[in-house]
Simulated assay, not measured.
Amino acid sequence: MTRSTPREFSLAALTVLELTPPEMVECAAESGYDYVGLRLLPATNQEVRHDIVGNTPLTRATRARLRDTGVKVLDIEIVRLKPGTHVADYLPMLETGAELGARYVLVAGNDPDEARMAERLAQLCDLAKPLGLSPSLEPMPWTEVKDITQGARVVKAAGRGNTGLVVDPIHFDRAASSTEELAALPREYFGYLQFCDAPAERPADLDTLLFQARCERMMPGEGGIDLAGILRALPGDLPLSIEVPTQQWAKSAAAVERARKLREASLTVLARTYAAR
């Protein structure tokens, strides 16, 4: 990839997790984003659970903000494929996402049985297809889908056209994946790219790994991850979902200010990446 087409940007939920879903939409609009990512189901038991699955007041308020601002929903979170997962239990979440206009569903692989996980991913895809949704598997080094190569193997085994992979730079780097591996994968596997940065030194323990990923990432271009290499290994028109949780920065800067600066920093990385070729 030698050049980038104009990019669309999405504000990931984890970047501004202190906000409610309608506030996330407003923040995305005020800070110049085309899309927003919404966490309809919490990723951990410690997170606030918003009543946004089904025809709830919060769902209606979110839909109204989307309509009024023109911001679109890129992805909804989070589906976890575990040993005991009943895929049909996610249908209300998928239906709500479809009603909000989402395109992708973020999926985490938490099943040590890879064949069963691929089967469940296929079931999820079949459930999501009539709703216009594409479940996308995100490799994370502490899950059972640890890297991009394993993720691609699961996606291939699922055998569905409406699935693929989500690359998150911090997870990609911490798993020691290579841009050569990434560039060799089918282009149709990728619908969007998460974007962030982190220190070059990889954590030596799980607690630090999780803390950096969930609480203290870095602004794109200020860390040591090979963002340019990741960008060049992927199609140049993928929307960028800016996912940069920053606990310390959030104590001193409002969500809109952080979102604007993160978008500006991402634009700078894009310009430098493609100008160098």
Score class of each variant (00 low, 15 high):
Asp89Asn: 15
Gly191Cys: 11
Glu99Val: 11
Leu193Pro: 01
Gly164Val: 11
Asp147Gln: 05
Leu137Thr: 00
Gly159Asp: 02
Asp173Thr: 11
Gln150Trp: 08
Asp113His: 14
Glu180Gln: 13
Pro112Ser: 10
Thr96Ser: 09
Leu165Gln: 03
Leu133Thr: 00
Leu74Arg: 09
Arg160Ile: 08
Pro92Arg: 14
Lys82Ala: 15
Arg120Val: 02
Leu185Val: 04
Leu137Ser: 02
Ile170Ser: 02
Gln194Ile: 08
Gly101Tyr: 03
Ala88Asn: 14
Ser177Thr: 05
Ala152Ile: 06
Pro112Ile: 07
Ala175Ile: 01
Ala118His: 04
Gly84Val: 09
Ala88Asp: 15
Pro186Val: 01
Ala198Asp: 12
Tyr104Asn: 06
Gly164Cys: 10
Thr85Lys: 11
Glu95Tyr: 06
Asp168Met: 07
Val145Ala: 02
Asp173Pro: 00
Gly164Phe: 09
Leu94Thr: 00
Glu180Arg: 14
Glu181Tyr: 03
Glu77Arg: 09
Pro199Gln: 09
Glu201Asp: 13
Ala115Gln: 12
Asp75Lys: 08
Ala184Glu: 11
Val79Ile: 15
Asp126Ile: 03
Ile78Gln: 08
Lys156Pro: 01
Tyr192Ser: 03
Cys196Trp: 07
Arg153Asp: 10
Gly101Pro: 03
Gly159Pro: 03
Ala200Leu: 11
Ala175Trp: 02
Gly191Arg: 14
Gln194Val: 07
Thr149Gln: 14
Leu74Cys: 12
Leu137Tyr: 04
Val167Lys: 07
Gln194Phe: 06
Gly164Asn: 09
Pro139Glu: 01
Glu138Asp: 05
Asn162Val: 12
Ser136Thr: 13
Thr163Asn: 10
Ala158Ser: 10
Ala115Met: 07
Glu181Asn: 12
Gly109Asn: 03
Leu94Pro: 00
Tyr104His: 11
Arg116Phe: 06
Lys156Val: 10
Ala102Cys: 05
Pro135His: 05
Ala175Gln: 01
Ala176Ile: 01
Lys129Phe: 07
Lys146Met: 05
Pro139Ser: 06
Ser136Ile: 11
Arg160Asn: 07
Lys82Arg: 15
Leu137Met: 09
Lys156Gly: 13
Ala128Gln: 00
Gly161Phe: 11
Gly97Tyr: 00
Leu81Lys: 10
Tyr192Ala: 05
Val167Ser: 03
